[in-house]
């Protein structure tokens, strides 16, 4: 009779001890994670605040809050080079948006062929496509440059945009093939029975059902093209053609060492489009990475 209540108290004790341990663990984990986030994001926030500081205050303050706010650096940076940053932003937008259109169109067509159409050599070409995923771009770099030079395309945006219309970024084909394979085949079989051509199946059934993957591809294409430095570096030499990334690089070469404020202001501006994607399409980006293992 006396044993039973005792056992009960022991059980509740270990339970509450367990709960306490769990609580402590959770608090410690949160403290760890919060401090890690602060350390990681501090440089970004610091650059943001530096871009709003008066010039003389940039280097002697570790705090994030400027003593007085000023937009001077933005005006200085915007016109800090021979050509205004406005031109660079327009160029970057044009290249990125054309790349998105080309990439989504060409890659979804190729992916449709690989996922749904039957033709001789399909497996072979699919394997070839997968091989190109692993290829370091340096191997094709020089002949491509020679090709574009002979076509008279160097110092235009064509070498940066045309390859996207030829589905050169095979990664997105792979991404879309995976998605298309998940769409029930009954849907397009029924359409074919009703006399739909492959083109109509692609246009009326596959694409409307694939908006998540198309959006993911579009966003990543935009971000990667926006960030691309190497392509513009070798193909664009006239400053009026420059992208934002090239503009920033010129800034570091010339005035950047004297005008850190302007440099930071333009750096912050260059990150804004990417940050907006992050803000509004975070779910899509993270799911895209989780399901396909994207590199960044």
């Amino acid at each position: 009779m006396t044993i039973e209540p005792m056992r009960l108290t022991v059980v509740t004790e270990t339970n509450s001890a367990k709960r306490l341990r769990k609580r402590i663990f959770s608090v410690v984990a949160h403290v760890l994670l919060i401090s890690a986030s602060i350390v990681m994001l501090y440089p970004l926030l610091w650059m943001l605040s530096a871009s709003f500081r008066p010039e003389n205050e940039i280097f002697n303050a570790t705090s994030l809050w400027p003593s007085s706010w000023s937009l001077d650096a933005y005006f200085r940076g915007w016109n800090g080079l021979r050509v205004s940053f406005g031109t660079f932003f327009i160029n970057s937008f044009i290249i990125s948006i054309l790349s998105v259109i080309g990439n989504v169109a060409a890659c979804s067509m190729a992916a449709f062929a690989f996922a749904r159409l039957e033709f001789r050599g399909r497996r072979f070409w699919f394997a070839m496509m997968l091989m190109t995923l692993m290829l370091p771009y340096q191997v094709t770099l020089i002949p491509q440059y020679v090709l574009f030079l002979n076509l008279g395309w160097v110092n235009t945006t064509l070498p940066l945009v045309v390859p996207k219309f030829l589905a050169a970024d095979a990664f997105f084909i792979f991404l879309m093939v995976q998605f298309f394979r998940g769409i029930p085949k009954e849907l397009d079989e029924a359409a074919v029975m009703d006399g739909c051509s492959p083109w109509r199946v692609y246009w009326k059934i596959m694409l409307p059902l694939s908006t998540p993957v198309l959006a993911t591809a579009a966003i990543f294409t935009f971000i990667w093209t926006w960030d691309d430095f190497f392509g513009p570096l070798i193909y664009l030499s006239d400053m009026r053609q420059y992208t934002v990334m090239l503009g920033l690089r010129s800034f570091t070469d010339s005035t950047g060492l004297s005008d850190y404020g302007g440099l930071f202001a333009m750096s912050v501006l260059s990150l804004v489009p990417i940050f907006l994607f992050f803000l509004f399409f975070q779910r899509l980006l993270i799911e895209g990475i989780a399901t396909t293992g994207m590199k960044r």
Partner: peptide, 24 residues
């Protein structure tokens, strides 16, 4: 139909990948 849908990729594959690999 398969090859028509693949056409853009195919041109890129030959002109921007295989051709350049051999040339390089």
């Amino acid at each position: 139909p398969g090859y028509l849908f693949l056409l853009p990729w195919f041109i890129g594959f030959l002109g921007l990948t295989i051709g350049p690999i051999l040339t390089s």
